[in-house]
Simulated scan of single mutants.
Amino acid sequence: MADTVVSSHEVTAPVTVVLADDQALMRMGFRMVLEAQDGIEVVGEAADGASALAQARALRPDVILMDVRMPGMNGIEATEAITAQCPGTRVLILTTFDLDEYAFAGLRAGASGFLLKDTRPAELAEAVRTVASGEAVVSPRVTQRMLEMFASHLPQDGQEAVVQDERIAALTPREHEILVLMAQGMSNAEIAEHLVVSATTVKSHVGNVLAKLDVRDRVQAVVVAYETGLMA
């Protein structure tokens, strides 16, 4: 009797992606970039926000690359609906630099990342993988622009600000310091190097920050930092 051979290689499912952009050529370009990468599969396309939401419901992709300005339901509205209705799907917003005023709105709507459309192919693919893994991605340039723009996006509801200030006040001095560094766009590794501590220690502190702020990920924590005026 022949021996049964069992492969020791673990089969990893590809990261599934839906492309949402009202320009067909843009979708084609993103598809070509992503499908040239190992472990990424484009499973659908949408030309507007409503179609993106429908694709998210039907296909349950890992990631949706979301344009902001689309006819009908725009990318911000679609992001808010998708993150509410399809919790397993992460949204990565891509837009042109002259639309960076939408970065804050997109992140508040629940996006897990925000990149510019001129991002290099390798960086785009890495961002898709990062977001699919549950982490967050924000372009350093977008982070800088948010620092410059935060004042115009402070909450209008005074009570909301008070509640969020109380959440900030609950942080320890170290957690407060780490939140500021996160809001400056630093990764865990960069924070660890800056503070001369281990990456494991930073990860633990970041987890505590997210829990105390009652937010889903580090992007939402950064939003809170901007909203409360912490980055003034």
Rank of each mutant, 00 (worst) to 15 (best):
H194D: 14
P61D: 00
Q55A: 15
L99Y: 14
V138T: 08
N188M: 07
A54K: 11
T228V: 12
A161R: 15
Q144L: 15
G39L: 07
V223P: 08
S133Q: 08
L92R: 01
Q159F: 13
V91M: 07
H194I: 07
D100F: 07
P71R: 09
L154E: 14
L19D: 04
E166K: 06
R108D: 14
G106A: 15
L99E: 14
S51D: 15
V17P: 08
V63P: 15
S198C: 08
G185Y: 14
T143H: 02
V91W: 05
G39H: 10
H205S: 13
L116Q: 01
D3P: 09
E175H: 10
L115I: 10
P121A: 10
K212I: 00
Q23I: 06
S133F: 05
Q23W: 02
M66N: 03
A211K: 07
A13G: 02
A122H: 13
H176K: 11
Q184N: 12
F97S: 10
V163I: 12
R174L: 14
V196W: 13
V6C: 05
F114A: 03
Q220A: 14
L115Q: 01
V180T: 11
L94C: 04
L230C: 01
R108F: 12
L179R: 06
A122W: 09
Q37E: 14
M28R: 13
D48M: 03
M66T: 03
V18P: 00
D98W: 11
A109S: 15
A24I: 09
A105W: 02
T96N: 03
H153I: 03
R57E: 05
I168Y: 10
E135T: 10
A232I: 13
G207P: 04
Y226S: 06
I191Y: 05
E45Q: 12
G229V: 04
M70G: 10
A232L: 09
T79D: 12
T228G: 06
H153F: 10
R120V: 13
E41G: 01
P140E: 01
T130D: 11
R27T: 04
A170W: 06
I168K: 14
Q220V: 09
V162Q: 14
D214M: 04
S152Q: 15
P173A: 05
F104W: 08
V11W: 06
I76N: 09
V15Q: 01
V223W: 01
T83I: 09
A151H: 07
R69E: 10
V206G: 05
A36H: 12
L116W: 04
A169F: 12
V6M: 08
V18H: 08
A47Q: 10
V138G: 03
D3V: 04
Q159C: 03
V223E: 08
A2F: 12
V42T: 01
Y226Q: 03
E227Y: 08
P121N: 10
L65G: 02
A54V: 12
V222Y: 02
L195V: 13
H194K: 13
R218M: 07
M186I: 00
L99D: 15
Q144D: 15
V142Q: 00
A36L: 09
A103T: 13
A103L: 02
R69S: 05
F104S: 04
E227G: 11
I82R: 02
T95E: 06
